[in-house]
Design a protein around this nucleic acid. Structure first.
Lengths: 194, 194
DNA sequence: TTTGATTTTGAGCACTTGCTCAAGTTAAAA
DNA sequence: TTTTAACTTGAGCAAGTGCTCAAAATCAAA
């Protein structure tokens, strides 16, 4: 052994994640990153290999954060559906200090045009995992009789993802903030009436 | 007078639009553009001023194309709603040779993080115009008794935009193509049951 | 046929990009 | 205290970026 690593990997990945989320992969330069995470090129490249390597960790970190956020909401609420609604409200309404109104996974999936690129494929993989995780939650909601079982949990999860993505995209514009509560209410009414 | 302009402005803007739509603004280099539109830098910059200037024309051209596509669908169909559904089917299902599954306006709106940038503001302006155009169509649908008038046309337009954006985002992944018809059907059932 | 305003060309500039690597710094182990 | 493997630093490289401009090409009018 010899010298110890000085930077806190988790904190660094998180700060990189915030910047990538805000600006996207292509519009974020390595100079921007150096400034944001306070590391010199040599350290960055020895720790992460490449800009892409750092982005991969950042995107995975983002996904883990979202899941944690949902878990927290579910712990607060007294049903799966009200927990999910709390989560959507948190994300869509109280997004003031988030780097972007739009989900970083969705941004990634839309930014990487080349379907053979590993970053596009990673975005797909993480989106699918997220949808599968939602399916588990909706299965619980069905089991709890919060939702009727005429439709498989997977369908609920798909509908949730579509609505959620659409909503977040819609609120990435100025002047529509006041519509959010009613539109979220509508989103959950649609889910419940499936 | 003297020499005439040799390139066809409309065709050039269209080809630029396809490339920008596919790769996004930041990931499209001026060299890529030169190749795609077969013009030398001097001609491009004398005609469009800057990469941004060309992008602005490309995005406006894209918007005009979409409206034309809707108009065509409406002419084919025997109701506003079936025309809109035909349009959504065309866009979501038969997207094989489109540069991206995702609407270029939505991509633009998500790519430009700086809310002061003129490209972000242009994306917002065009999205709002598109929604207003849809409101007119939904007002006609209400007048035709295709939809009940318990809800203003604007609400239908908003719901349409959210669903449409969500759906297109969802189908920007491999392996879900077969779900499209049922999910589009579902989208219009949701709208009709509002 | 000549003229001359206009368009097209492409070499190349100033700057930014992702990234490297030799030199310097650090701290656990000997 | 000395050694030494590991980490950090930052000047700077090669390639790519958006863009300019002097020269060449073009073609309607004289």
């Amino acid at each position: 052994m010899a010298n110890k690593i000085k930077f806190q990997r988790e904190a660094v990945v998180h700060r990189a994640s915030q910047l990538f989320w805000q600006k996207g992969f292509h519009a974020t330069s390595t100079r921007d990153l150096q400034l944001a995470i306070n590391m010199r090129p040599g350290s960055i490249y020895s720790a992460f290999g490449s800009k892409e390597g750092l982005y991969i960790e950042a995107l995975k970190d983002y996904t883990a954060q979202i899941k944690q956020q949902i878990t927290d909401c579910l712990a607060t609420a007294d049903s799966i559906l009200s927990g999910l609604q709390l989560f959507v409200e948190n994300v869509v309404i109280h997004k003031a200090n988030a780097p972007s109104a739009i989900c970083m996974l969705v941004k990634a999936n839309s930014e990487f045009a080349d379907k053979d690129s590993s970053l596009y494929q990673l975005s797909v993989e993480l989106l699918n995992k997220f949808e599968n995780y939602l399916s588990l939650l909706f299965q619980q909601a069905i089991d709890n009789k919060e939702l009727n079982n005429s439709v498989p949990a997977q369908h609920y999860a798909r509908l949730f993802v579509v609505q959620f993505t659409g909503l977040r995209g819609y609120f990435n514009r100025p002047g529509v903030e006041s519509l959010a509560p009613a539109m979220i209410e509508q989103m959950f009414n649609i889910i419940k009436s499936l």
